[in-house]
Amino acid sequence: MHLTDKQLSSAQATAQLNKPQLVLGAKGKAVKELQKLLIHWGYCPTINGIFRQTTLEIVKAFQYRVFLKPAQQLSSAQATAQLNKPLLVLEAKGEAVEELQKLLNHWGYYLTIDGIFGQTTLEIVKAFQRRVFLKPDGIVGNLTWQALYIGSPNMPILQRGSKGQAVITLQETLQITGHYTERIDGDFGSITDAAVRSFQKDAGLVADGIVGSRTWYAMSKIFAAMGC
């Protein structure tokens, strides 16, 4: 059977792929296949065949990335509670630190997996936080854990007329890339709009001036390349 250009409903698509619908609590080979596919696209769930909360959050992140109905944004407290991860700081030890180090290795930061949150791990955590536009304080809490699992910034959608701290972050990043040379004022006006469109064009994105998940992700790669 050949698909036409007509958009399929999710039920039709699932039927034609002959795949079961998966929800929280599901188990089995289909869940393992899902988890392997998520790894293929740069996410890092554990391949255990169990559709737990961590897999759910990664699925939501992937859905947002491909412009399916996005998940409801979690507050930082909800994110930590649902992922059930401890707060980690310098000198912490144990399995959670090992998991943190494995996740950092997955995203291209190479460090020894020893379960000890030493100075090297601290500096790499700060580098990762900068990459996903979090405060680089080296404290692994709610938002940092969430970013480690989905691998991309959890930033708001911005466009002309937006204002605030997220716009400041955007302008600072565009200054680094050389697309914005004006004053950092947190106001998404015509100059910021032009800078965003220029960046999007250079990054091979649709130059629409809207800073969504794909644009934020493209900007996060700059920090990875700089190793900062």
Rank of each mutant, 00 (worst) to 15 (best):
residue 161 G to W: 11
residue 77 A to Y: 13
residue 4 T to V: 09
residue 157 I to F: 08
residue 118 G to M: 01
residue 96 A to W: 08
residue 118 G to E: 01
residue 95 E to W: 15
residue 222 I to C: 02
residue 140 V to Q: 08
residue 183 R to F: 10
residue 218 A to S: 11
residue 71 A to G: 14
residue 154 N to P: 06
residue 21 Q to Y: 07
residue 42 G to S: 09
residue 134 L to I: 14
residue 174 L to M: 02
residue 213 S to K: 10
residue 170 L to E: 01
residue 153 P to W: 02
residue 31 V to I: 07
residue 154 N to W: 15
residue 218 A to G: 01
residue 125 V to K: 05
residue 139 I to H: 05
residue 190 S to T: 14
residue 151 G to F: 11
residue 69 K to Q: 02
residue 15 A to W: 10
residue 27 K to T: 04
residue 140 V to C: 08
residue 78 Q to D: 14
residue 6 K to W: 05
residue 183 R to N: 11
residue 129 Q to F: 08
residue 24 L to A: 02
residue 17 L to C: 08
residue 77 A to R: 13
residue 140 V to T: 03
residue 133 F to P: 12
residue 176 I to M: 00
residue 150 I to Y: 04
residue 47 I to A: 07
residue 204 G to H: 15
residue 39 I to R: 06
residue 130 R to P: 11
residue 21 Q to P: 01
residue 160 R to Q: 15
residue 27 K to Q: 07
residue 101 Q to S: 11
residue 135 K to V: 14
residue 171 Q to L: 00
residue 88 L to A: 02
residue 182 E to L: 14
residue 79 A to N: 06
residue 90 L to N: 04
residue 67 F to E: 07
residue 102 K to T: 10
residue 135 K to E: 15
residue 64 Y to M: 05
residue 160 R to W: 07
residue 117 F to K: 01
residue 31 V to G: 02
residue 217 Y to I: 06
residue 171 Q to R: 00
residue 61 A to I: 02
residue 64 Y to D: 10
residue 172 E to S: 03
residue 41 W to F: 15
residue 166 A to Q: 07
residue 116 I to Y: 04
residue 219 M to W: 01
residue 88 L to F: 07
residue 159 Q to I: 12
residue 212 G to C: 05
residue 228 C to A: 14
residue 144 T to W: 06
residue 107 W to V: 04
residue 178 G to P: 00
residue 156 P to E: 12
residue 144 T to V: 05
residue 208 D to H: 10
residue 214 R to A: 14
residue 59 V to M: 13
residue 202 D to N: 15
residue 200 Q to M: 13
residue 55 T to M: 02
residue 203 A to Y: 09
residue 88 L to N: 04
residue 75 S to H: 06
residue 63 Q to I: 09
residue 70 P to S: 00
residue 214 R to S: 11
residue 5 D to K: 14
residue 191 I to D: 07
residue 36 K to T: 10
residue 120 T to K: 02
residue 121 T to L: 01
residue 18 N to H: 12
residue 90 L to M: 09
residue 45 P to M: 09
residue 133 F to W: 08
residue 129 Q to N: 11
residue 92 A to M: 03
residue 151 G to E: 02
residue 176 I to N: 00
residue 20 P to Y: 07
residue 142 N to Q: 12
residue 65 R to V: 00
residue 2 H to G: 13
residue 57 E to M: 07
residue 41 W to E: 13
residue 108 G to D: 06
residue 74 L to H: 11
residue 14 T to H: 06
residue 34 L to G: 02
residue 224 A to R: 14
residue 30 A to D: 08
residue 182 E to V: 06
residue 24 L to V: 00
residue 60 K to V: 03
residue 21 Q to D: 04
residue 71 A to S: 08
residue 179 H to R: 09
residue 157 I to D: 14
residue 70 P to M: 03
residue 61 A to F: 05
residue 82 Q to T: 11
residue 175 Q to D: 00
residue 12 Q to P: 04
residue 152 S to N: 12
residue 118 G to N: 00
residue 47 I to W: 09
residue 201 K to Y: 15
residue 18 N to R: 11
residue 113 I to A: 03
residue 75 S to F: 12
residue 212 G to R: 08
residue 222 I to A: 02
residue 14 T to S: 13
residue 197 R to N: 06
